[in-house]
């Protein structure tokens, strides 16, 4: 049978299809993660008109631009503070931050921990491809020890951030980690997180064969997906001291934190308005 291209996809309605094809490399994981996000959105029954998506800069930062919703492609590292202002202005909307590891926990690391501490009501999808992909594969704060990158040609002498541990310690109310291979679990997790409130983090480890895999003996997307298949272990509520990513150890994935009743920043800020004015909002 001759190969046929799909003309219409069931989730096209969520995409600005006139912007396709996307910029991501063959074998990249971001597309699968975006698909899981749309699945999660559908599962959670979220009206896309009530959803605002904010990205920073980088490969994952381009996600916002492909979504057929109100979307924002901000500056490098600053998606979270932008989203904080947006959510405060429109507490009735769902605000999702969809960005990469370099953007969210390296250049933007300080905003990340403070938003978690404040419990700003944001769902953060953090795609961790273990390096800076768009700029050519440099080391990041998420690159595992000993990994080869273009700026660690002799191997990374630094340790990486253990992102779930960091987020939980800073106060995140929902923390989960999946990989781009675990699409169903990821979609389910995204759907669940949509129905929580407060600072929610889903880390998604993703393959970047072009810049990371190539230099670390996994030159194809498939090689990296096999790595995810063979070297991950699902461990819900894991001890977060054990969730660091190391090249020669099993990567712990699962749902680690799920706190349901912590008041958000926005609830408290508008609660303050009511308290100070002595009236209910809208009166």
């Amino acid at each position: 049978m001759p190969m046929q291209f799909v003309k219409y996809h069931v989730r096209d309605k969520y995409l600005k299809t006139d912007r396709l094809p996307h910029i991501w490399c063959p074998g990249c994981g971001i597309g699968s993660i975006l698909n899981a996000f749309l699945l999660g959105l559908e599962k959670a029954n979220i009206d896309p008109d009530k959803l605002l998506v904010v990205s920073g800069i980088g490969c994952t930062g381009r996600v916002a631009g492909y979504l057929n919703m109100d979307t924002f492609h901000t500056t490098h590292g600053r998606a979270i503070p932008f989203a904080i202002g947006l959510k405060i202005a429109r507490p009735d909307m769902h605000v999702v931050v969809f960005s990469g590891d370099g953007d969210l926990v390296t250049i933007g690391g300080n905003h990340f921990i403070h938003a978690a501490r404040r419990n700003n009501d944001l769902l953060v999808i953090l795609v961790n491809n273990l390096n800076y992909g768009m700029t050519g594969g440099q080391v990041g704060a998420t690159t595992p020890h000993n990994a080869i990158t273009t700026t660690t040609p002799y191997g990374n002498i630094e340790d990486d951030f253990n992102i779930p541990f960091l987020a939980a310690a800073a106060g995140a109310v929902y923390v989960a980690r999946w990989t781009s291979l675990h699409v169903r679990r990821l979609a389910w997790s995204i759907a669940e997180a949509f129905h929580r409130k407060g600072f929610r983090l889903i880390e998604v480890i993703s393959q970047c064969p072009t810049t990371f895999g190539r230099r670390n003996k996994m030159p194809n997307g498939l090689d990296m997906l096999k790595w995810f298949r063979d070297n991950t272990i699902v461990k819900h509520n894991a001890d977060l001291r054990e969730t660091r990513i190391e090249l020669n150890r099993k990567i712990v994935i699962g749902k680690f934190i799920d706190i349901k009743d912590k008041p958000t920043f926005e609830e408290q800020a508008y609660g303050l308005v009511e308290k100070v004015r002595g009236v209910k909002r809208g009166e």
């Binding site: 503070p81 932008f82 989203a83 904080i84 202002g85 947006l86 405060i88 202005a89």
Partner: peptide, 18 residues
């Protein structure tokens, strides 16, 4: 906010929020 970059980005976000 945690710094001035966060401050200005938050007001830019809020402005887009109306």
């Amino acid at each position: 906010m945690e710094d001035e970059i966060g401050s200005i980005m938050a007001i830019i976000g809020a402005s887009w929020g109306g």
